[in-house]
Write a protein that binds this DNA or RNA. Structure first.
Length: 498
RNA sequence: GGUCGGUUGGCCGAGUGGCUAGGCAGAGGUCUGCAAAACCUCGUACAGCGGUUCGAAUCCGCUACCGACCUCCA
């Protein structure tokens, strides 16, 4: 397997061979959530996508430093110098709690949800409020380099000057620079501090009602939204690092402004590769509160929503996400989730079945043996092609069919070499659990239940021996109502939850 | 309005010049006391209209529809 990892770089608009700046190591920064409300299902998709990327990079042997921030100050509702207010400060004011209580509550909720979705924790999870000094220093650097100006205690990034001096602004998001320049003061509404509409705040003087405030050379205030990512990525990954990720809706203005800040302060764009995950849709439209088509993760799990017919477990949802590519929009529908649930259960069953396979004695490779190896190679070739999880998943299901065929005896295990069987028994769990990050959802590993089930199966076997079909069927049907499925095979009966 | 992306079989969703994924649903079969599960077989889809080509779902153009972004967004 000689293929190399190729990633789609939003910066160039092309797929590129991934070559880390420092051999063997990868620095990756992903924009995390603003913790002013419960985590949104769309956020979950983005973080699951980057979890897969993180897992695969590690699988390839890279030493990965994965930084995902928590934004707990500076993210405004509305525009900076109209009547905008910091989201967290506003929430705290309305609920009569400390801003840090808001931050703590939703950070906890976010972590809980990331855990439920079985995402690996990042290497570093820095908070904006923990890096006020770094942000102030970066504002100063930007001012020193002539890319900022001060108005009434607030500091703004001079986008016009940046455009004129560097041919960088708008490149990532495909903005037409002429349009940005031609915006006039007529667009400024009632703003009066910005010199140009496309400028943005990097330090904001706090108005009296604002609860979050720090001293700075310019005013008692707080940092602008985009600044924390620039400051923290620079601190933990350096002025230049490998991968910067986030949802595609962050391209503009967030990432564009981030690049401007990094260039303004450090003289270089921060990341070599920009990866953007696409939006989660609900019934064909971007899930958003104004559309009324939102569903919370918990509603999705419990089924407590008019948009779905029943609840779906977190791993079913994760599996569902893996069946589409991270750069495609993904439409969440009830039917699609039902299909995912069935597929997920079949996959889990196969991870057990593969362990039971034995008797591989072939001395030389048969066509079946070659086929199995090619399918396994294919998984990694697909992952190397910009983390193509749906394609890789298709390969896994090809293998599931072979595994089931071997177990059922339709395919001959004797045609498989011991080496190939060993590989299969390693690759399947590696890919399913380590790479895709799926996990078994048995509810609980209850040895008592196992014992009870063996007892029930045994009693039913006795009934069947006596051709007491009524008892046998009653046991089977009632267990089925409890979502326990009995499977009668030539070698006895097994059970699984359904 | 500007910019970008999409339109694939009953549903979801990959692919992107010839080899025409996968999941779910459906049909037939094997197995089974009957089922279920599993396995086998089947369905031949790429918005429309032109063009390029020996050959296009895949490239180009036009049309239609959908979506995203355009200083709240993951």
């Amino acid at each position: 397997m000689n293929t190399k990892l190729v990633v789609y770089n939003s910066w160039s608009g092309e797929k590129e061979v991934f070559t880390p700046i420092h051999e063997g190591r990868v620095g990756m920064y992903v924009c995390g959530p603003t913790v002013y409300s419960d985590v949104h299902l769309g956020n979950c998709r983005t973080f699951v996508s980057f979890d897969i990327i993180f897992r695969y990079l590690k699988y390839l042997g890279y030493q990965v430093r994965y930084v995902r921030n928590i934004t707990d100050v500076g993210h405004l509702e509305g525009d900076a110098d109209t009547d905008a207010e910091d989201k967290i400060s506003k929430k705290a004011r309305l609920e009569h709690v400390e801003p840090m209580e808001v931050v703590q509550r939703y950070s906890n909720g976010f972590h809980e949800m990331m855990d439920i979705f079985n995402t690996l924790p990042p290497s570093i999870e820095p908070r904006a409020t923990g890096h006020i000094i770094e942000q102030i220093e970066m504002v100063q650097d930007i001012l020193d380099n002539g890319y900022g100006y001060i108005k009434n205690g607030s500091v703004y990034f001079d986008v016009q000057k940046f455009i004129n001096e560097k041919d960088l602004y708008g490149k990532l998001s495909g903005r037409v620079v002429e349009d940005l320049i031609s915006l006039t003061r007529d667009n400024l509404k009632n703003q009066d501090e910005k010199e140009h509409p496309s400028d943005f705040a990097i330090w904001i003087k706090a108005d009296p009602r604002h609860l979050m405030r720090w001293n700075s050379p310019w005013s008692v205030g707080f940092p602008g939204w985009h600044l924390e990512c620039s400051a923290m990525s620079t601190k933990y990954l350096g002025k230049q690092f490998d991968i910067h990720g986030g949802g595609t809706d962050l391209k503009f203005p967030h990432h564009e402004n981030e690049i401007a800040q990094n260039v303004g302060a450090c003289g270089t764009p921060p990341a070599k590769y920009w990866l953007h995950s696409n939006m989660l849709l609900m019934n064909g439209r971007k899930m958003s509160k104004s559309e009324g088509n939102t569903i919370t993760p918990f509603q999705l799990f419990t089924g407590d929503s008019p948009l779905i017919s029943k609840g779906y477990s977190p791993m079913v949802v994760r599996f569902f996400m893996l069946q589409s590519h991270y750069r495609s929009t993904l439409d969440l529908t009830d039917g699609a989730l039902q299909a995912a649930e069935k597929g997920f259960l079949r996959l889990m069953e196969a991870t057990h079945t593969v362990k039971e396979l034995a008797g591989a004695v072939a001395k030389e490779s048969s066509s079946l043996d070659q086929e199995l190896n090619e399918m396994m190679d294919g998984i990694f070739e697909d992952m190397n092609d910009d983390f193509n999880t749906p394609k890789a998943m298709a390969r896994v299901f090809d293998l599931v069919t072979r595994i089931n065929g071997l177990k059922a005896g339709h395919l001959s295990i004797a045609e498989v070499t011991p080496e190939t069987l060993d590989r299969l028994q390693k690759v399947i769990p590696d890919v399913v659990f380590e790479l895709f990050g799926l996990k078994e959802e048995t509810g609980s590993d209850d040895s008592a239940l196992d014992g009870v089930m063996q007892l029930v199966i045994d009693i039913r076997r006795q009934a069947r021996t006596k051709k007491d079909w009524a008892t046998a069927d009653q046991i089977r049907d009632q267990l089925n109502d409890l979502h326990i499925q009995l499977k009668d095979g030539p070698e006895g009966t097994t059970w699984s939850k359904s």
